[in-house]
């Protein structure tokens, strides 16, 4: 039995100034080597759930939080961000909002430098991570000159460089074309094979049906279903206004 990477126990969260709970009574656990796809309508609490997994909520995102979140057996509430970032990385939906350095290399090394890793070592790790996402020739380029897909790969390289055991991704391919999306998901597959925990929120059920090993369906801050990829064809997806995987939808409507 593999050790639990992330464990959430009865998590509830309400944003400051709002009445409605963004998350209500969420209890989940994620193991190493799992590729978890979180799906649900807009505003269902997917991103908030990710933010609870790495302590952004309530440490940075203010709100009323209850319950307990653990990262590799440690209470996240008692961990600082430098420690959390060693165990868990996050890739945000829009890479334009998170990239701020003048070169790809500096951007990817940023997390390691924060941990006190010597500069030379951090740059070497950044180089390796950038090579892995296939952008080595852009290592010294300005990230703002890159395409959306390349920027998202830089954001993923930031997570790779930190060599954390869990990676959280918030709709990582929402602004990418089909080919780039496939490349990003192939990379995530490789990470899962290395034993890392990958948790991604996603609207594209086709991608999830091909790559995820576990699907969590969320609505109104609650987990509606938690199971294998068969969840995507259970009818719940359509009920929530989402599109089921294309091939399966054709079969259902015939």
């Amino acid at each position: 039995m593999q050790k639990k990477a992330i464990r959430l126990h009865n998590i509830s969260f309400t944003y400051v100034g709002r009445q409605q709970k963004a998350l209500e009574g969420i209890s989940l656990s994620f193991r190493g080597g799992e590729f978890v796809g979180i799906i649900g309508p807009v505003g269902s609490g997917k991103t908030t759930l990710l933010c609870c997994c790495n302590g952004l909520a309530p440490k940075e995102i203010r709100g009323k939080f209850s319950g307990k979140a653990e990262l590799f057996g440690k209470d996240i509430a008692k961990m600082g961000f430098p420690e959390i970032s060693r165990a868990c990385s996050m890739v945000f939906q829009d890479p334009n909002d998170q990239i701020f350095n003048l070169t790809v290399e500096e951007e990817v090394a940023f997390g390691l430098l924060n941990r006190g890793v010597p500069r030379e070592q951090a740059l070497a790790a950044a180089r390796k991570a950038v090579e892995r996402v296939g952008l080595l020739e852009r290592l010294h380029d300005d990230p703002s000159d890159l395409s959306s897909g390349q920027k998202q790969k830089v954001a993923i390289a930031c997570a790779l460089a930190s060599d954390s055991k869990a990676i959280l991704l918030d709709e990582p391919v929402s602004s990418l074309d089909w080919r780039s999306s496939q490349e990003v998901y192939a990379l995530l597959d490789a990470l899962v094979h290395e034993g890392k925990t990958v948790i991604a929120t996603e609207q594209d059920t086709c991608l999830l049906s091909k790559h995820a090993t576990r699907i969590i369906v969320m609505d109104e801050g609650r987990v509606k279903k938690d199971g294998g990829v068969e969840v995507l064809t259970s009818g719940l997806i359509e009920k929530l206004g989402l599109r089921p995987p294309a091939g399966m939808a054709c079969l259902n409507t015939r």
């Binding site: 952004l56 970032s85 990385s89 334009n96 998170q98 940023f110």
Partner: peptide, 19 residues
Amino acid sequence: RRARTLSYSMASRGFDPDS
């Protein structure tokens, strides 16, 4: 919005302004 997301991103990458 960018300032907010950037601060979240930096926190998740271990940045501690008071360290």
